[in-house]
Amino acid sequence: MKEEHGDKHTKRYGMVIDLDKCTGCGACMVACYAENNVPFKKDETDKLDSLNWIRIFQLTNGKPYPDTEICYLPMPCQHCDGIGKHGHPPCVSVCPAIATDYDDSTGVVSQIPTRCFGCRYCMAACPYHARKFNWWDPVWPADTKKYLNPNVSTRMRGVVEKCTLCFHRYQQARDKAYLEGREEIYESEYQPACAQACPTNAITFGDLNNPDHAVFKLKNSPRAFRLLERLHTNPKVYYLSSKTWVRRAGDNYLENESRPKSNRQKIHS
Protein backbone atom coordinates (compact mmCIF):
# COMPACT_ATOMS: atom_id res chain seq x y z
CA MET A 1 0.00 0.00 0.00
CA LYS A 2 1.14 3.51 -0.72
CA GLU A 3 2.51 5.67 2.06
CA GLU A 4 2.73 9.39 1.69
CA HIS A 5 4.49 12.07 3.70
CA GLY A 6 5.71 9.65 6.33
CA ASP A 7 2.29 8.31 7.36
CA LYS A 8 2.72 5.22 9.47
CA HIS A 9 -0.19 3.40 7.91
CA THR A 10 -2.82 3.89 5.27
CA LYS A 11 -5.86 5.69 6.55
CA ARG A 12 -9.44 4.96 5.67
CA TYR A 13 -11.46 7.95 6.70
CA GLY A 14 -15.13 7.30 7.15
CA MET A 15 -18.08 8.03 9.35
CA VAL A 16 -20.53 6.23 11.54
CA ILE A 17 -23.99 7.77 11.72
CA ASP A 18 -26.13 6.76 14.67
CA LEU A 19 -29.69 6.75 13.35
CA ASP A 20 -31.02 6.24 16.87
CA LYS A 21 -29.68 9.71 17.65
CA CYS A 22 -30.53 11.51 14.38
CA THR A 23 -33.54 13.79 14.70
CA GLY A 24 -33.55 14.80 11.04
CA CYS A 25 -32.96 18.45 11.98
CA GLY A 26 -30.89 19.16 8.87
CA ALA A 27 -28.04 20.94 10.67
CA CYS A 28 -25.54 18.70 8.83
CA MET A 29 -26.99 19.81 5.50
CA VAL A 30 -26.84 23.49 6.43
CA ALA A 31 -23.27 23.18 7.72
CA CYS A 32 -22.27 21.39 4.54
CA TYR A 33 -23.81 24.09 2.33
CA ALA A 34 -21.92 26.80 4.22
CA GLU A 35 -18.59 24.96 4.49
CA ASN A 36 -18.39 23.78 0.90
CA ASN A 37 -19.95 26.77 -0.88
CA VAL A 38 -22.76 24.62 -2.22
CA PRO A 39 -25.07 26.81 -4.30
CA PHE A 40 -28.84 26.68 -4.02
CA LYS A 41 -31.79 27.40 -6.28
CA LYS A 42 -34.40 30.07 -5.78
CA ASP A 43 -36.99 27.33 -5.62
CA GLU A 44 -35.76 24.14 -4.03
CA THR A 45 -39.00 22.18 -4.43
CA ASP A 46 -37.56 19.76 -6.96
CA LYS A 47 -34.87 17.88 -5.07
CA LEU A 48 -33.78 15.92 -8.11
CA ASP A 49 -31.75 18.81 -9.45
CA SER A 50 -30.77 20.30 -6.09
CA LEU A 51 -27.15 20.49 -5.13
CA ASN A 52 -26.65 18.85 -1.76
CA TRP A 53 -23.67 16.87 -0.65
CA ILE A 54 -25.63 15.31 2.18
CA ARG A 55 -29.35 14.54 2.11
CA ILE A 56 -31.72 13.31 4.79
CA PHE A 57 -34.24 10.60 4.04
CA GLN A 58 -37.22 9.79 6.15
CA LEU A 59 -37.83 6.07 6.40
CA THR A 60 -40.94 4.52 7.83
CA ASN A 61 -41.82 0.99 8.85
CA GLY A 62 -45.07 1.46 6.94
CA LYS A 63 -47.23 0.24 9.80
CA PRO A 64 -50.45 2.07 10.67
CA TYR A 65 -50.82 4.13 13.85
CA PRO A 66 -49.98 3.41 16.66
CA ASP A 67 -47.23 1.11 15.41
CA THR A 68 -45.77 3.67 13.01
CA GLU A 69 -42.08 4.24 13.36
CA ILE A 70 -39.89 6.63 11.47
CA CYS A 71 -36.18 7.01 11.11
CA TYR A 72 -34.09 9.81 9.60
CA LEU A 73 -31.14 8.77 7.51
CA PRO A 74 -28.50 11.33 6.43
CA MET A 75 -26.77 10.24 3.24
CA PRO A 76 -23.51 11.79 2.08
CA CYS A 77 -21.24 10.24 -0.56
CA GLN A 78 -20.46 6.78 0.79
CA HIS A 79 -16.78 7.00 -0.23
CA CYS A 80 -16.90 3.42 -1.42
CA ASP A 81 -13.75 1.31 -1.34
CA GLY A 82 -15.35 -0.86 -3.97
CA ILE A 83 -14.68 -4.46 -4.80
CA GLY A 84 -11.67 -5.91 -3.02
CA LYS A 85 -10.80 -2.82 -0.95
CA HIS A 86 -8.39 -1.69 -3.63
CA GLY A 87 -9.89 1.65 -4.45
CA HIS A 88 -12.40 0.55 -7.06
CA PRO A 89 -15.58 2.48 -6.25
CA PRO A 90 -18.37 2.38 -8.84
CA CYS A 91 -17.70 5.95 -9.96
CA VAL A 92 -13.91 6.27 -10.18
CA SER A 93 -12.97 3.80 -12.89
CA VAL A 94 -15.76 5.02 -15.18
CA CYS A 95 -14.70 8.68 -15.30
CA PRO A 96 -13.17 9.18 -18.74
CA ALA A 97 -11.04 12.17 -17.74
CA ILE A 98 -9.80 11.10 -14.28
CA ALA A 99 -11.85 13.91 -12.76
CA THR A 100 -12.64 11.72 -9.79
CA ASP A 101 -10.04 9.73 -7.97
CA TYR A 102 -9.57 7.37 -5.06
CA ASP A 103 -6.92 8.65 -2.67
CA ASP A 104 -4.93 5.64 -1.53
CA SER A 105 -3.58 7.41 1.54
CA THR A 106 -6.96 8.40 3.00
CA GLY A 107 -9.57 6.40 1.11
CA VAL A 108 -11.35 9.62 0.17
CA VAL A 109 -13.09 9.58 -3.20
CA SER A 110 -12.19 12.99 -4.55
CA GLN A 111 -13.82 15.09 -7.22
CA ILE A 112 -11.87 17.55 -9.35
CA PRO A 113 -14.48 19.94 -10.78
CA THR A 114 -11.99 21.72 -13.03
CA ARG A 115 -11.17 18.39 -14.65
CA CYS A 116 -14.79 17.34 -15.06
CA PHE A 117 -16.38 18.05 -18.42
CA GLY A 118 -19.83 16.97 -17.37
CA CYS A 119 -20.41 13.62 -19.08
CA ARG A 120 -22.27 12.43 -15.95
CA TYR A 121 -21.15 8.81 -16.32
CA CYS A 122 -20.18 8.80 -12.61
CA MET A 123 -23.74 9.82 -11.74
CA ALA A 124 -25.10 6.89 -13.71
CA ALA A 125 -22.63 4.63 -11.91
CA CYS A 126 -23.42 5.74 -8.35
CA PRO A 127 -26.32 3.77 -6.86
CA TYR A 128 -26.66 6.25 -3.97
CA HIS A 129 -27.25 9.33 -6.15
CA ALA A 130 -24.52 10.98 -4.12
CA ARG A 131 -23.22 12.83 -7.15
CA LYS A 132 -24.78 16.13 -8.09
CA PHE A 133 -24.65 18.02 -11.32
CA ASN A 134 -24.46 21.81 -11.63
CA TRP A 135 -27.44 22.30 -13.92
CA TRP A 136 -27.15 26.08 -13.45
CA ASP A 137 -24.38 28.54 -12.80
CA PRO A 138 -24.22 29.24 -9.06
CA VAL A 139 -26.02 32.40 -7.95
CA TRP A 140 -24.99 34.04 -4.68
CA PRO A 141 -27.73 36.49 -3.75
CA ALA A 142 -26.93 39.88 -2.23
CA ASP A 143 -23.99 39.74 0.16
CA THR A 144 -23.79 35.96 0.44
CA LYS A 145 -20.71 36.04 -1.79
CA LYS A 146 -18.85 37.62 1.11
CA TYR A 147 -19.60 34.61 3.27
CA LEU A 148 -18.13 32.04 0.90
CA ASN A 149 -15.49 29.77 2.37
CA PRO A 150 -12.14 30.84 0.88
CA ASN A 151 -10.74 27.31 1.35
CA VAL A 152 -13.17 25.70 -1.07
CA SER A 153 -13.40 26.81 -4.68
CA THR A 154 -16.88 27.34 -6.08
CA ARG A 155 -17.95 25.24 -9.03
CA MET A 156 -19.36 26.27 -12.35
CA ARG A 157 -22.27 25.14 -14.48
CA GLY A 158 -21.87 21.82 -16.24
CA VAL A 159 -19.71 19.87 -13.79
CA VAL A 160 -20.36 17.19 -11.19
CA GLU A 161 -19.69 17.73 -7.50
CA LYS A 162 -20.09 15.71 -4.35
CA CYS A 163 -19.06 15.28 -0.72
CA THR A 164 -15.27 15.36 -0.28
CA LEU A 165 -15.36 14.57 3.46
CA CYS A 166 -14.21 18.21 3.81
CA PHE A 167 -10.85 17.20 2.41
CA HIS A 168 -9.60 20.80 2.66
CA ARG A 169 -9.82 20.42 6.44
CA TYR A 170 -7.61 17.35 6.20
CA GLN A 171 -5.07 19.31 4.22
CA GLN A 172 -5.12 22.11 6.78
CA ALA A 173 -4.68 19.62 9.62
CA ARG A 174 -1.75 18.05 7.77
CA ASP A 175 -0.13 21.44 7.29
CA LYS A 176 -0.55 22.25 10.97
CA ALA A 177 0.91 18.89 12.02
CA TYR A 178 3.86 19.39 9.68
CA LEU A 179 4.62 22.82 11.11
CA GLU A 180 4.47 21.39 14.60
CA GLY A 181 6.81 18.57 13.62
CA ARG A 182 4.20 15.84 13.98
CA GLU A 183 3.76 12.94 11.58
CA GLU A 184 0.19 12.19 12.56
CA ILE A 185 -2.84 14.40 12.94
CA TYR A 186 -5.12 14.13 15.92
CA GLU A 187 -8.61 12.70 15.55
CA SER A 188 -10.13 16.02 16.57
CA GLU A 189 -8.05 18.01 14.09
CA TYR A 190 -9.83 16.63 11.07
CA GLN A 191 -13.60 16.57 11.40
CA PRO A 192 -16.00 17.40 8.55
CA ALA A 193 -18.53 20.20 8.96
CA CYS A 194 -21.54 17.87 9.16
CA ALA A 195 -20.08 15.87 12.06
CA GLN A 196 -19.27 19.04 13.98
CA ALA A 197 -22.67 20.59 13.37
CA CYS A 198 -24.75 17.62 14.48
CA PRO A 199 -26.46 18.70 17.73
CA THR A 200 -27.01 15.13 18.93
CA ASN A 201 -23.54 13.87 18.01
CA ALA A 202 -25.10 11.33 15.70
CA ILE A 203 -22.20 11.62 13.25
CA THR A 204 -18.82 10.28 14.34
CA PHE A 205 -15.90 10.70 12.01
CA GLY A 206 -12.41 9.30 11.94
CA ASP A 207 -9.96 6.76 10.58
CA LEU A 208 -11.68 3.40 10.33
CA ASN A 209 -8.27 1.70 10.40
CA ASN A 210 -7.12 3.39 13.60
CA PRO A 211 -8.05 1.52 16.80
CA ASP A 212 -7.72 4.78 18.76
CA HIS A 213 -10.46 6.49 16.79
CA ALA A 214 -14.06 6.24 17.93
CA VAL A 215 -15.28 5.02 14.55
CA PHE A 216 -13.06 1.95 14.79
CA LYS A 217 -15.15 0.51 17.61
CA LEU A 218 -18.48 1.87 16.45
CA LYS A 219 -18.26 0.24 13.02
CA ASN A 220 -18.03 -3.15 14.68
CA SER A 221 -21.16 -2.59 16.76
CA PRO A 222 -23.93 -5.17 16.31
CA ARG A 223 -26.16 -2.20 15.44
CA ALA A 224 -23.95 -1.30 12.45
CA PHE A 225 -24.87 -1.72 8.81
CA ARG A 226 -24.01 -0.13 5.50
CA LEU A 227 -26.16 0.80 2.53
CA LEU A 228 -26.35 -1.64 -0.38
CA GLU A 229 -23.64 -3.95 0.90
CA ARG A 230 -24.82 -6.65 -1.48
CA LEU A 231 -23.60 -4.61 -4.44
CA HIS A 232 -20.03 -4.84 -3.08
CA THR A 233 -19.64 -1.08 -3.17
CA ASN A 234 -17.94 -1.40 0.22
CA PRO A 235 -18.87 2.04 1.63
CA LYS A 236 -16.94 3.83 4.36
CA VAL A 237 -20.12 5.32 5.80
CA TYR A 238 -21.61 3.08 8.47
CA TYR A 239 -25.01 3.46 10.08
CA LEU A 240 -26.13 2.36 13.52
CA SER A 241 -29.65 1.43 14.43
CA SER A 242 -31.14 -0.67 17.18
CA LYS A 243 -34.18 -1.37 15.00
CA THR A 244 -34.14 -4.44 12.78
CA TRP A 245 -36.43 -2.90 10.17
CA VAL A 246 -34.08 0.05 9.75
CA ARG A 247 -31.05 -2.19 9.34
CA ARG A 248 -32.91 -4.24 6.76
CA ALA A 249 -33.93 -1.06 4.94
CA GLY A 250 -30.29 -0.61 4.05
CA ASP A 251 -30.32 -3.30 1.41
CA ASN A 252 -32.49 -5.18 -1.08
CA TYR A 253 -33.78 -8.62 -0.24
CA LEU A 254 -35.64 -11.26 -2.20
CA GLU A 255 -39.18 -12.28 -1.31
CA ASN A 256 -38.00 -15.43 0.43
CA GLU A 257 -35.51 -13.36 2.38
CA SER A 258 -38.54 -11.50 3.80
CA ARG A 259 -37.73 -8.01 2.67
CA PRO A 260 -39.73 -5.42 4.57
CA LYS A 261 -41.89 -4.01 1.75
CA SER A 262 -42.76 -0.93 3.75
CA ASN A 263 -39.47 0.86 3.28
CA ARG A 264 -40.13 2.09 -0.21
CA GLN A 265 -41.02 5.54 1.04
CA LYS A 266 -38.96 8.60 0.77
CA ILE A 267 -39.35 12.12 2.04
CA HIS A 268 -36.53 14.57 1.54
CA SER A 269 -35.77 16.80 4.40
Partner: peptide, 14 residues
Amino acid sequence: GQPLRGWFIFWHAN
Protein backbone atom coordinates in the same frame (compact mmCIF):
# COMPACT_ATOMS: atom_id res chain seq x y z
CA GLY B 1 -21.92 19.90 -19.45
CA GLN B 2 -18.72 21.69 -20.46
CA PRO B 3 -18.44 21.28 -24.24
CA LEU B 4 -15.29 23.41 -24.39
CA ARG B 5 -13.57 20.86 -22.19
CA GLY B 6 -14.61 17.96 -24.40
CA TRP B 7 -10.99 17.37 -25.43
CA PHE B 8 -10.16 16.33 -21.84
CA ILE B 9 -11.50 12.89 -22.70
CA PHE B 10 -8.58 12.48 -25.12
CA TRP B 11 -5.91 14.49 -23.35
CA HIS B 12 -6.52 13.22 -19.81
CA ALA B 13 -7.75 9.83 -20.95
CA ASN B 14 -8.60 7.31 -18.26
